[in-house]
Amino acid sequence: MEITNLFDNIEETSSIINKKYPVAEIAFLVIASFICGYNNWYSIARFGDANIAWLRKFFPYAN
């Protein structure tokens, strides 16, 4: 089982208007960041920016 399969059953509850980032992408980014030692929103965002090519191997991260 791949780790990305764990996010298949996450229910999107946000409205279409506010749905810029899929919940699965956010969850994967946060978990990967925590594993790497990033523990606040600012550092998680920096981790995401610095590792976008790697993150896109798992999810589109179109936005």
Rank of each mutant, 00 (worst) to 15 (best):
Y61G: 06
A50S: 13
E2M: 01
N9G: 00
Y61A: 08
E2W: 02
D49Y: 06
F59N: 07
K20N: 08
F28Q: 01
I3S: 03
T4V: 15
I17Q: 06
F47G: 03
F58T: 13
G48I: 11
S14C: 13
I52D: 04
A27L: 15
F7V: 02
F58I: 11
N18A: 11
I35H: 11
S15D: 07
G48W: 02
L6F: 14
S43Y: 08
N63R: 11
I16A: 14
K57F: 02
N18K: 09
A53W: 10
L55F: 13
Y21Q: 08
S33I: 08
F34W: 15
K19R: 11
R46L: 12
W54Q: 10
Y21H: 15
S15T: 12
Y38N: 01
I17D: 09
T13I: 14
I16M: 07
I35A: 11
V30F: 10
A27H: 09
E11P: 07
I26Y: 06
A53R: 10
E25N: 12
A45M: 08
F59E: 14
F47E: 04
L55N: 05
V30N: 01
S43A: 10
G37Y: 06
A32I: 07
A53V: 11
A62C: 07
W41L: 12
R56L: 02
K19Q: 14
N9E: 00
P60M: 03
E25S: 08
C36Y: 09
K57W: 03
L29F: 05
F28S: 02
V30C: 05
E12H: 04
Y21P: 05
K20A: 12
I31W: 10
I44H: 05
A45V: 13
Y21G: 04
S33W: 02
I10C: 00
P60L: 01
V23Y: 00
P22Q: 04
V23D: 00
V23T: 04
A62H: 12
K57R: 07
Y21R: 14
M1C: 04
S14K: 15
F47C: 06
V30E: 06
I17S: 05
F7T: 00
C36T: 05
T13N: 13
I16L: 10
K19C: 07
K57I: 05
S43L: 14
P22W: 00
I31Y: 09
W41Q: 06
N63D: 05
S43K: 15
A32L: 13
A50L: 13
R56H: 00
F59V: 11
N9V: 02
W41T: 14
A27C: 13
K19G: 10
F34I: 11
F59M: 07
E2T: 02
Y38I: 02
C36R: 10
S14T: 14
